[in-house]
Design a binder for these strands. Structure first.
Length: 414
RNA sequence: GUGGGUGUAGCUCAGUUGGCAGAGCACCUGGUUGUGGCCCAGGUGGCCGUGGGUUCAAGUCCCAUCACUCACCCCA
């Protein structure tokens, strides 16, 4: 055991795993560009205040999950726990915005939250984020959800559930919260779980999302946010649903879907999978019209989502690595230089493969060639050196091989 | 922050009421002088997570500690 180990909740990804992330990133770029999105790369480190003001001072993320520290000049900095705040900050700071402008931006990269790790949750995790900045129209909400769905389909995922809700706006949500508190006042609070008795006062919306059976039963007849939407929010939500339906995307209405970050309003959504353990949510997002103003910028509406790559990777299964074109099997010490030079020539011509640096027995070197899954075994032994030739062995068909001059290797590969 | 589970070979794991440290896979070398996969034989490889304690004797029992893991909270 090495005496220095990686820190808790951080992981090393070797090729069999990192291949999945590369695939996810490439697919995201391809799909998002079809929707007119371009990549925005923002810093991993931001001033702490940015996250306090955007995510919400009272949220768990800000209260107990941030990697926050003082730099050498005693400024409080934080490793980003999510992407949207940084994107909004960058967008405001750039000064590029003007009324009527629409920006389509996505971001990829690591996020950091100080939580206890478990399946589908690390302290450093990766998200692909998309932000559609500018439009108030509900069609934009639908488009973002459709783009997310297109991405998930492109990586081959089935059996995902789209849950949809509207949280209302600053106008109608307070009315609903009041109705909810009245409801809790009217029921026997003793039947609620310990957490929910606390939450009923502090964050009543959360109680509706509790999985404890007793709480579920007690809140069965609780008022629904969808019955309390105001005259602006109702048609907005109706249009979102209509567009999704006409696009053929099935979704489930979940009036109890609550988001953990304060900046969401109106449309919210979540994509879940039943196959990845307790942390079932692979993506979540919604509309955050108030965020830019809260950060001291202009009043810009926006919709977006965050998608967890580790959770997607859990659903991917092993990816097949491509077969190398060749493996140079060195049988004679005098061929050790030539082997590397032969490989170099082939690589310059676009072929891929490896070399056994040290000479060894035929059996040993061919075993290596076989293990590398190469299509061609290129044998350099005593007789080949003497004649300036290479024996090319077809590793995919038993007993098929030929010996050719150095310069004719490329056209004779199997 | 709270609870459960697990730490033995590179990996996956056995190891009885306390009595010599094991298997499979992987790796290496052979089984025809220069021909892979399948098969066979042999071999390399262990501070039994760490530190205390009990005992003639501890992988095994007790205490502590660390790590990993699953779940809660919460989120992607």
């Amino acid at each position: 055991m090495a005496d220095i180990q990686k820190i808790k909740g951080f992981v090393d990804l070797f090729p069999s795993e990192s291949d999945k992330f590369t695939f996810l990133e490439q697919t995201a770029r391809t799909v998002f560009s079809r929707y007119g999105f371009g990549e925005l790369r923002t810093p991993i480190l931001e001033k702490t205040e940015l996250f306090c003001r955007s995510i919400g001072e009272e949220t768990d993320v800000v209260q107990k999950e941030m990697y926050t520290f003082l730099d050498r000049k005693d400024r409080s900095l934080t490793m980003r726990p999510e992407a949207t705040a940084g994107v909004a900050r960058a967008f405001i700071e750039s000064g590029l915005w003007q009324p009527g402008l629409i920006s389509r931006l996505y971001s990829l990269g690591p996020m950091f939250r100080y939580e206890r790790p478990q399946k589908g949750r690390q302290r450093q995790f990766h998200q692909v984020n998309a932000e559609l900045i500018g439009p108030v129209e509900p069609q934009a909400d639908a488009e973002v959800i459709l783009m997310l769905d297109a991405f998930l389909k492109a990586i081959g995922l089935q059996k995902l559930t789209v849950e949809l809700n509207s949280l209302g706006c600053p106008e109608c949500r307070p009315v609903f919260k009041h109705a909810l508190k009245e409801f809790f006042a009217g029921i026997d609070a003793a039947g609620l779980c310990e957490d929910c008795r606390r939450r009923a006062g502090t964050n009543p919306l959360r109680v509706l999302d509790c999985k404890v059976p007793g709480c579920k039963a007690l809140t069965k007849d609780a008022p629904s946010i969808l019955d309390h939407l105001c005259d602006h929010c109702v048609p907005h939500f109706e249009t979102v649903k209509t567009v999704l339906t006409r696009a053929g995307l099935p979704f489930t209405l979940n009036p109890r879907l609550v988001r953990g970050l304060d900046y969401y309003q109106r449309t919210t959504f979540e994509i879940t999978s039943a196959d990845i353990g307790a942390q079932a949510s692979v993506a979540g997002g919604g509309r955050y019209d108030g965020l830019f103003k809260a950060l001291g910028g202009p009043d810009i509406p926006a919709v977006g989502f965050a998608c967890g790559m580790e959770r997607l990777a859990l659903l991917l299964g092993q990816m097949e690595r491509p077969r190398p074109d060749f493996f140079v099997a060195v049988l004679d010490e005098r061929a050790e230089d030539a082997a590397v030079l032969l490989a170099q020539t082939l690589r310059e011509a676009g072929f891929s493969g490896e070399v056994s640096y040290k000479a060894g027995s035929m059996k040993s070197r061919l075993r290596q060639a076989d293990k590398s899954r190469a299509r061609n075994g290129l044998i350099l032994g005593e007789s080949e050196i003497a004649a300036s030739q290479v024996t090319i062995k077809n590793m995919t068909v038993a007993g098929e091989q030929k010996t050719v001059p150095w310069a004719q290797v490329i056209e004779n590969l199997y």
